[in-house]
């Protein structure tokens, strides 16, 4: 996994509540057996009209959003299905950071497994950032995972919280499985302690 230590990029803002994974990556694109190439289908039904032409009004299609790598989203982002394809699509499109007042659990976890940093910020701050961004007061931001700081290009700085374990994994680009296998003896001891009926079948 690609480590994320510090990331600087353009921000796009999406003012929609409860954006679900069916919107992030509609199911007709879930049939592939690879992990890459999902970016072109990101937000497909919103991004394109029924005839396949881009929907000029959709947030990601505006001139200002081109090349954005940081998504400023709203409440309960990523709700719905567990499909990791949603994160693969965001990452493949180029997003490395998603900032929102709240995320759905499974989506939140899936982000970390794919080198995407989800950051939770207070609702008021989110609102203010969205407003100033809409007015064009700022365009870009730097996210420093080491210092746990976000800084906008108009000089606003604020701290954020992140789970220390997840932070460590992301800073170092570590694979969870490798880490877990260091606990092989513990797993084996646990398995030996189980009762017979717990394994029936």
């Amino acid at each position: 996994m690609e480590p994320l230590v510090k990331h600087e990029g353009k921000v796009v803002c999406m003012n929609r509540l409860n954006v679900d994974t069916d919107q992030i990556i509609p199911k007709q694109f879930l049939k592939r057996i690879e992990r890459d190439g999902f970016g072109e289908f990101l937000f497909y039904d919103w991004r394109y009209e029924a005839d396949g032409t881009p929907n000029a009004e959709f947030e990601l299609n505006t001139a200002r959003a081109q090349g954005a790598t940081i998504l400023l989203a709203d409440e309960n982002f990523g709700c719905g299905s567990s499909r990791e394809h949603a994160v693969w699509a965001l990452a493949d499109y180029g997003f490395r950071v998603v900032i929102a007042p709240s995320f759905a659990d499974i989506f939140f976890n899936n982000c970390f497994k794919n080198g995407v940093l989800p950051i939770v910020i207070p609702s008021d701050l989110r609102k203010e950032l969205a407003e100033t961004h809409a007015k064009g007061q700022w365009e870009r931001a730097t996210v420093d995972l080491e210092a746990q700081v976000i800084e906008t290009d108009c000089g606003q700085r604020f701290q954020f919280e992140v789970d220390p374990h997840k932070r460590y994994m992301l800073l170092n680009g570590l694979d969870d499985i490798g880490l877990t296998l260091q606990y092989e003896d513990d797993i084996r001891a646990y398995e030996a302690s189980r009762k017979a009926y717990q394994f029936v079948y």
Partner: peptide
Amino acid sequence: FGIGTSEVEHVLATQCLWQN
């Protein structure tokens, strides 16, 4: 509970999962 594909791989390999 539901998990993502990376976690599916993790459970297949280790029969365990990291959880808060």
